[in-house]
């Protein structure tokens, strides 16, 4: 069975495109539409990697990261941020929260996301 990726993202087009791309090459995809749902699914399903958006309803990406780093069970799951933001201060904050990579959506496309994922799992 393929590795499991949890995609936490609120933008429908991105969800559909990424799910299609990733499942097309054999990954198992779990979805969450906001941060809280993402954390719940993480605890429930223990994915191999998390793709995480930053600006989301209910609970944003940084809050998710902070909770993950406090939770022993979630501590070592690699996280790739896919966001449309990405300023120096945000990158710095993400680095402190042990984020593996930060991809700005407008600068990357699904193919490149796949390449990044392959670096970590």
């Amino acid at each position: 069975m393929g590795k499991k990726i949890l995609l936490i993202e609120d933008e429908e087009v991105i969800i559909r495109l990424l799910s299609r791309k990733l499942s097309g090459i054999g990954y198992e995809i779990a979805l969450a539409m906001d941060g809280q749902e993402g954390l719940d699914k993480m605890r429930e399903q223990r994915p191999d990697l998390v793709l995480l958006d930053i600006i989301m309803p209910r609970k944003g990406g940084f809050e998710v990261l902070e909770e993950m780093r406090k939770d022993d069970r979630l501590f070592d799951i690699p996280v790739i941020i896919i966001s449309n933001s990405g300023q120096p201060l945000e990158l710095e904050r993400a680095k402190k929260l042990k984020v593996s990579d930060w991809l700005v959506k407008a600068e990357f496309d699904p193919k490149e996301v796949v390449e990044k994922i392959k670096k970590y799992i």
């Binding site: 087009v13 991105i14 990424l18 791309k21 933001s85 300023q87 407008a106 496309d109 699904p110």
Partner: peptide, 25 residues
């Protein structure tokens, strides 16, 4: 951060969609 999000979200959806169509996905 907010401006980037607001402006980039629609165009990155366009970018990704076009890219996947062009890649035959």
């Amino acid at each position: 951060s907010i401006a980037a999000h607001q402006l980039r979200t629609p165009i990155s959806a366009i970018k990704w969609t076009l890219r996947m169509i062009l890649d035959g996905d």
